[in-house]
Each structure stands twice: as C-alpha cells, then as structure tokens.
C-alpha cells in the first residue's frame, strides 16, 4: 500500500512538472510570436511609405528609373511573402535596394531642399530603426525559446509535443559588419 501511495505521488509530481515545462515553452513561444507581430507592424508601415517616397522622388530622378523600379519590385515581392523565412530573405533584399536609393538621392541637391521628401525620408529611417529594434527583441525571444527546447529535460517534452526551432532574423553579412570605432 505504501508503495502504491509513493508511486502515485511521484506520478502526480511528474505530471505537474511536465505541465510546468510545457507552459514555460508555450509562454516563450507566444512571446517570440508576439515580437514577430511587432516586426510585421513595422514592415507594413514600410510598405506603405515606399510608394509615397518613390512618387515624390520620381520627378527629380527621371533617369534613375531602374533603381526606382527595383525598389518598387522588391517591395511588392516582400509584401506578398507568406512564411517567416520567405519574409526574412525578401525584406533583406528590400533593405538593400532602399540603401542604394538613399545613396543615389545624396547626389541630387534638389531633393535635399524638398521638405516633403525630407519628411518621407525621416519617416523611412525611423521605420528602419524600429524594424531593427523589433528584430533585436525578436531574436532575443527566439534565442530564449530555442535554448529552452534544446536543454535537457525540456527537450524530451518539446519533441513529444512537436515544438520546432524558430529561425533567427538575420541580416546580410555586409550590413551586420560590426562598426569600427573611429574618431
């Protein structure tokens, strides 16, 4: 009889332990998904802003049509992507084209004086910053989630309930170079 009580107590404790771990994993996953939603909001903002900027700039940059078309094309592709992995790669391409656009815009003195363009550019840089900040917190959340499901007892439960690793939002190697300290 004592053995029976003892065993049942162990089983109950085990079940409680499993539930606790399961909840922790779910909690971390929801946090990661939530910060992905944050990124989504900012990306959406960027998709809305780009056509406005291109429209404002068009008149000044008539013979830079190629760059402008590239930006619009990349934007359309990125806005239609469905999975997280697709989104990440497409948005990296879009960031690259935007950077070339900003670089080209530097050569046009007319654009620097235009208040409307300046406002749009400020909005876009702000959005870029927000995306990078949101990416920071998404990557942190993903890191916590991934380590949790790979550590020992919780990895067994993760396998049982089919939790899968999430992908980090990584930037192109060119962009992610650590900045040198220069005075």
């Amino acid at each position: 009889m004592i053995i029976f009580y003892f065993l049942s107590a162990i089983i109950i404790l085990l079940i409680i332990y499993i539930i606790a771990i399961y909840n922790r994993i779910i909690n971390l996953k929801v946090k990661a998904e939530n910060s992905w939603a944050q990124i989504k909001v900012q990306l959406e903002r960027r998709y809305d802003l780009i056509p406005n900027l291109v429209e404002a700039v068009k008149g000044y940059m008539a013979h830079e049509r190629e760059t402008l078309e590239k930006v619009i094309k990349a934007r359309n592709i990125a806005s239609e992507s469905k999975t997280i992995n697709e989104q990440i790669t497409n948005d990296n391409i879009l960031s690259g084209t935007l950077k070339t656009l900003f670089a080209v815009m530097e050569n046009y003195p007319d654009l620097k004086a235009n208040q409307n363009v300046m406002k749009l550019q400020e909005e876009l840089t702000s959005t870029e910053n927000r995306i990078s900040f949101a990416r920071q917190s998404y990557n942190d959340a993903v890191m916590r989630y991934n380590t949790e499901i790979n550590l020992f007892p919780s990895n067994i439960i993760a396998k049982k309930f089919n939790f899968q690793e999430l992908k980090f939002y990584e930037v192109d190697e060119k962009v992610s170079k650590t900045p040198e300290v220069k005075f």
Binding site: Q42, E122, S126, F133, A134, Q136, S137
Partner: peptide, 19 residues
C-alpha cells in the same frame, strides 16, 4: 517641423526597443 517630428519618431522607436 521635420526636426521635431524626428524627436517624436525616436521616442516611438525606443518604445519598440524597450517594449
């Protein structure tokens, strides 16, 4: 004002960064 708008934007960015 573009310069003031910049400040508003930066505060919003930092809200994203710090949740």
């Amino acid at each position: 004002d573009v310069l003031h708008k910049q400040i508003i934007n930066i505060v919003e960015e930092l809200k994203v960064a710090t949740n």
